[in-house]
Design a protein around this nucleic acid. Structure first.
Lengths: 359, 359
DNA sequence: TTGAAAGCGCTACCAC
DNA sequence: GTGGTAGCGCTTTCAA
């Protein structure tokens, strides 16, 4: 690989001048500039990112730390982050924590040694609260994605309470009264928000919240499967189900299949987060699609903003999820608009004084 | 962040000694060693990866360049690469080419400037042949994954011909004779291999290959959907379908649903590559699961081996896909072993003199 | 408008 | 067994 000194030599200028031309950080005489650029082209020079990072304390690299690389939700987030990273000339370092908080802290430490300019972090389900505090103290830019942290931190989340309420409203609207919710593990913002949106929806309709309709799905497929089998085996089972993440949706569907119930006649189901295979079920899955790609993109933008201005006020971006009407909710096929779940991605940018839940 | 000089000062030794203790690259007196280690612990020293990379020309970072971050197949590959990278202390730089060869070459160039130690590359569907040649000339270690390149290159692929033949054999075994194949775009190794496995399976059974049973699915969901709708609308339609990637499987299922056919009575279907939602279909999907995680892991291992010994003979690792028997093939439920597709991952390591297709 | 040179933090050569 | 120091390739201050 050609180095700057090669370019300088070829152009008959000093290294510093060559550098100024390449970086554009100082104006250079027209003729000199031209000669340098020519030399760059001839040698095929590309600045060495490592040397640059060492010297300038900016690596143009950000780290993406996520709990599960197999979950299509996070996959889509990665896609969004990657797209924005490429668009802004950043490199992307990727780490999977596998929902393990220990791996999470270890990764963060190692990544700091890589001199990344910042982190985009999807917290694990069990991240200890002081991890975020430590991060704040460390002065390294970071932004949380999906699962919320304390206020005063840059983050991008979904309006999960709204999303859940939309699902409840729809089910109520088409006549359901006994609506169960397959809830995730307590204590993580997403699960809590979805549950409170569910309660809010019922309350608004004047329906008493019934603890027995809350099915503890544990955020995971297999746990959800077991819990749903149990819940739907009871005599006073719900007639509609809101499932609050895509893993649990798979479990719930398996449970329903096992029990030999049909959708939507025996049991209606609506999923929080859409899935690519929603359309190939006997009764296509009605869902609320998370703006996952947009979340990744916004997270990256927030991070770059923070890198540029470390003292800017913290920003919490909340994105709206999109209702995708299909048939598993029990609406007649005619009333359902066709079209696949091309998640349009309306963006809400809200300042530090956020509304809604403050995790 | 503490630097090596801080450690040295604190331990009362020279910088070089501190370095030798940290890297273990030279033996150091017991007492000195102890003091240095103590200083390391006290200061919380972590070696600066950037400075190290600049000095030693080894960044301990590898790049993963893939055509589609949303495809669950590649997602699983990423998972495997990441796991092995973490296990061996490598960092992972990620790039999405979006099946665009231009982005592919641009990425490769930029990544070289990042001083990555090597590349793991999933070629796009249209990568020009000279890209691989250029890579070989560049002397940077690289390994191909999934789609094969020319011989003489480190790569890990699936025994796709075998996988397709297994599907054909099974369908023949249970009585099918008119077996169609939804084939991917011509010219990429995976699609070609699957098609030739299909032919081989038919030939072995003494059944003439019938061009009209080859459905051009274009490797993509929507193209496959259209092609399958057309193929299944003909009077002489096939009674069983082999679909040769997971995207097209989605399209084929949509087509079947649209046409109002039932699986497996009207049309049997077997998918090449398993999907997490195989079990929630009315007739659970019989599939051949690719060892995607293992592919990622093996690719990383191959790469590290190549980094260690640049002149070792090229190695082509071929992994076996696993038949996952469910019900969409038309077997009676009783004859189907239960259990989800926990892909066991038998590994075949074969030297440079490979068998089977040579790209 | 241009150039010389210090130095980012580390590794590894050479000297003792 | 230990230490001094050159230098990886670049940016940027200081001087001309």
């Amino acid at each position: 690989m050609a180095r700057l000194v090669d370019v300088a030599r070829k152009a008959g200028v000093s290294i510093s001048t060559a550098s100024y031309v390449v970086t554009g950080s100082r104006s250079v005489g027209e003729e000199t500039r031209r000669r340098v650029l020519e030399a760059v082209a001839e040698t095929g020079y590309t600045p060495d990112a490592v040397a640059r990072a060492l010297r300038s304390a900016r690596s143009q690299t950000v780290a993406l730390v996520l709990p599960d690389l197999r979950n299509p939700f996070f996959t889509a987030v990665i896609d969004g982050v990657e797209a924005e990273a490429r668009a802004s000339g950043q490199s992307l370092l990727m780490v999977n924590t596998g929902e393990d908080p220990e791996r999470e802290v270890a990764s963060l430490r190692e990544l700091r040694a890589q001199r990344v300019d910042g982190f985009i972090i999807g917290l694990t389900r069990q991240t200890p609260p002081d991890l975020v505090r430590n991060l704040q103290n460390s002065k390294k830019p970071f932004v949380l994605v999906d699962r919320a942290g304390p206020t005063g931190v840059d983050q991008v989340t979904v309006l999960n309470d709204v999303a859940a309420k939309v699902m409840v409203d729809h089910l109520l609207h088409i006549g359901h009264r006994r609506i169960g919710i397959v809830a995730g593990v307590r204590g993580i913002s997403t699960a809590e928000d979805r549950l409170s949106g569910y309660r809010a929806g019922l309350e608004a309709a004047g329906i008493a919240f019934d603890e027995s309709l809350v099915i503890a799905g544990g955020s995971r497929r297999e746990l959800a499967r077991l819990a749903v089998v149990e819940a739907l085996s009871k005599p006073d089972r719900p007639h509609a189900l809101i499932v609050t993440n895509n893993e649990m949706t798979l479990g719930a569907l398996e449970a329903i299949l096992t029990l030999g119930l049909s959708i939507p006649s025996d049991i209606a189901i609506v999923s929080l987060d859409d899935v690519p295979w929603a359309g190939v079920l006997g009764s296509p899955l009605t869902a609320v699609a998370q703006p996952s790609f947009a979340m990744g993109r916004e997270a990256m933008r927030l991070l770059l903003r923070r890198v540029e201005s470390p003292d800017a006020p913290p920003r919490w971006v909340r994105l709206r999820a999109e209702f995708v009407h299909r048939q598993s909710c029990g609406c007649s096929p005619e009333s359902v608009s066709t079209g696949t779940a091309e998640a349009g991605q309306p963006v809400e940018g809200i300042g530090a004084t956020a509304f809604g839940r403050e995790s």
